[in-house]
């Protein structure tokens, strides 16, 4: 259903511009500003003023989008966008890849893959198929066979006690600790102890080394640290 008032039409136009569904230049800003002023009338009530403010805000957003588009077009020096789109249509995949390759200065970095991690990835679960990111968090759990039953709490207690005995208030290496038994189960149990504030986890920003130590007092944390087991240096 089309928007009834000029205010609603302006807000709707801005939404379309933000969603990329309409060009910011398809809207006559000057005429809209005048129409908004007329629609407001000589004696606006509180609701009118609020709606008017929303519409003026949307109108300024459209002007902002026009500015951005002008800046973008000027910086990309594309004189004929239609021709660009047609040219893409007429090129094959190799030619397009080549065009990008000749226009790119790729970023350079070294993923922190160690020899140990490579060996682990091939030996830990050789038959494992590629797991989609969305499935990764839940994938190892059935293997770990850990369920939130009555025995779950004592299991977490036991691993915290074990850490206390091993660490003696010092930081110890996370990987070597979880490797002392069923790796996935221990990592899973530890994650609850960490969330519960009973174990402190630290990731060195330079080396990426993960260390843990028992907490002296329980401080619950809402911060999350993602540790991808497949990426750990596990032999």
């Amino acid at each position: 259903m089309p928007a009834a008032t000029i205010r609603e039409r302006v807000v709707d136009a801005f939404r379309k511009v933000e969603a990329g569904e309409a060009s910011p230049f398809s809207w006559d800003v000057k005429a809209s500003a005048k129409a908004l002023r007329e629609e407001l009338g000589p004696a606006p009530d509180k609701d009118d003023l609020i709606d008017d403010a929303k519409a003026v805000n949307a109108l300024s957003g459209i002007v902002g989008a026009q500015g951005k588009e002008v800046e973008f077009i000027a910086s990309s020096s594309v004189l004929n966008p239609f021709m660009l789109e047609k040219s893409v249509d007429s090129l094959d995949v190799e030619a397009l890849a080549s065009a990008l390759w000749q226009s790119i200065s790729p970023s350079v970095d070294i993923p922190q893959v160690t020899v140990e991690a490579l060996i682990a990835s091939s030996t830990w679960s050789p038959s494992r198929k590629r797991i989609a990111w969305s499935e990764r968090t839940s994938a190892p759990l059935p293997k770990a066979d850990v369920k939130k039953t009555d025995e779950f709490g004592p299991k977490v207690d036991a691993i915290v006690d074990e850490l206390r005995a091993a660490a003696r208030d010092e930081e110890i290496d996370y990987v070597s600790f979880i490797k002392r038994g069923d790796l996935v189960e221990r990592a899973y149990l530890l994650s609850f102890a960490i969330t519960d504030g009973r174990v402190l986890l630290n990731v060195d920003p330079i080396s990426g080394k993960i260390t843990i130590k028992p907490s002296k007092r329980r401080v619950k944390t809402s911060a999350s640290v993602v540790i991808v087991l497949e990426e750990l240096p596990i032999e």
Binding site: S75, S76, S77, V78, L84, S87, V88, L91, L96, S98, A99, L100, Q102, S103, I104, S105, P106, S107
Partner: peptide, 11 residues
């Protein structure tokens, strides 16, 4: 990383 005007020109 990408020079967009160069990309458009090359395409």
């Amino acid at each position: 990383e990408v020079d967009l005007s160069e990309l458009a020109r090359r395409i």
